[in-house]
Design a protein around this nucleic acid. Structure first.
Lengths: 232, 232
DNA sequence: CGCGCTCGTTGCGCCAGGACAAAGACCCTG
DNA sequence: CAGGGTCTTTGTCCTGGCGCAACGAGCGCG
């Protein structure tokens, strides 16, 4: 498909052991797609006929419960694969990936996955490592939700965000995409109100600097202390 | 290795596309090991040099937090692989699998994994599906912990247990291995006390029947209603 | 067969944090 | 630059469920 930046894809860990020829065959089956901010790539419950790779931008994957509550399952960063339902033995997508920022994805029909793995075991190994890491993260989150109180959980979430999407500025580290208090609440299993209170308190202490859909971490070290230690 | 029940292994979904010859080569590298109740197969933090398959019995995988709190990450059922850290790009085991009942495991050196996947992509695909399901379960648990209150979470946990380890008896469905209130608490992110209160209440309503390390579900349908619906 | 240990039950007080409410602050649009 | 929508802040109240404490019950062991 014309338009896909081949060297960008080439550099992804997921494809690190593929030959150029193999990569080309893979890209030949791919389609590129632009996703505007606020738009969903697909919807929860929809039949899973494609899987995706995020090239640019940022997505948040949400799930809606039966009673309408929403949670953010994870963020998708550039280079991540998502919409992998079929390979995970599901017929429908378990969540909805929505663009938090202007994004570009490429996608393949699900059949392609099986075909390529047969010919190239490395791909499966790499994908498994990537899914394995997601599993680790999920377990970490479960542990946090079970044992830590809200302020610690929010601290951990923010630290994770600057790790995965932090851009160093003169005043500190900025989270590189628009994120609301509501988003952070849905990532940590609390309410918008509690997050707002906590961030305000941190701002008073000089740990962070807020703003509409913005967050700048001034003092990551103190935040880390707060996240780990018992004392605030 | 002598002593491994080949037809039992043959029947596992994980190996469903392997030829008999391939299976034999795999088993040739395996070691069998008996694990007594209460004993750990390995310890959290230990260097991951082997991976495992549970043949018989039941394991609970726990993680301990820095401040000493414990949670149950998941239960391992017969046929499940565990201790997969290396394939997931970790050097050490993230948790401790402890036998809840007399168990038998087989294990391989981690190097074997890479070798076999190269020769047999199906194995990778199967393993990925299995890990994918674990990821789904983890997300489900995260969603529950974020949105549901304790009684609902406990209901879900118990339902999951009878699904994965339920033995139908005349009076209802029994959980087929010793499980304490503390265990259920660690699975649902609450305290032993709350679980005890909840189960007592259910017993009064005739939904379950308790006992020391025992649990019998008398009325799974009502429990399911309680887990899903808003009303108790 | 009685002693001790582990596991389970239950009562009570307290508080983190959720629910509700209302008022700013910021941004886009016409 | 006025108006409306969205996001955020902050206050007040209220409750689920945790912490603490003490007791009861089943099980294994000498």
């Amino acid at each position: 498909m014309a338009g896909i930046n081949r060297s960008l894809v080439r550099a992804l860990p997921l494809f690190n052991k593929l030959s150029d020829a193999e990569l080309d065959r893979l890209l030949a089956r791919a389609t590129m797609q632009r996703v505007a901010t606020g738009e969903a790539v697909f919807e929860q419950g929809q039949k899973a006929d494609r899987f995706f790779l995020l090239l640019h931008g940022r997505l948040k994957v949400t799930q809606v419960t039966a009673d309408g509550q929403q949670i953010i399952v994870r963020m998708v960063h550039p280079g991540d694969i998502f919409g992998f339902a079929k390979a995970l033995q599901r017929d429908d997508y378990p969540g909805t990936p929505t663009a938090s920022a202007e994004s570009v994805v490429i996608c393949w029909p699900t059949e392609v996955w099986g075909q390529f793995v047969e010919q190239n075991p490395h791909l499966a190994v790499n994908a498994m490592q990537s899914i394995g890491q997601r599993l680790q993260e999920a377990h970490t989150r479960i542990r946090e939700m079970a044992t830590e109180e809200v302020e610690h959980r929010v601290a951990h979430a923010v630290l994770r965000l600057i790790e995965q999407a932090g851009k160093t500025e003169s005043a500190g580290i900025r989270i590189d995409f628009p994120i609301s208090r509501q988003d952070i609440a849905e990532m940590t299993g609390t309410t918008l109100h509690s997050v707002s209170r906590i961030l305000s308190a941190w701002e008073t202490k000089g740990l962070v600097e807020g703003g509409r859909q913005k967050l700048l971490v001034r003092d990551a070290a103190s935040l880390r202390l707060l996240a780990e230690g018992e004392a605030g």
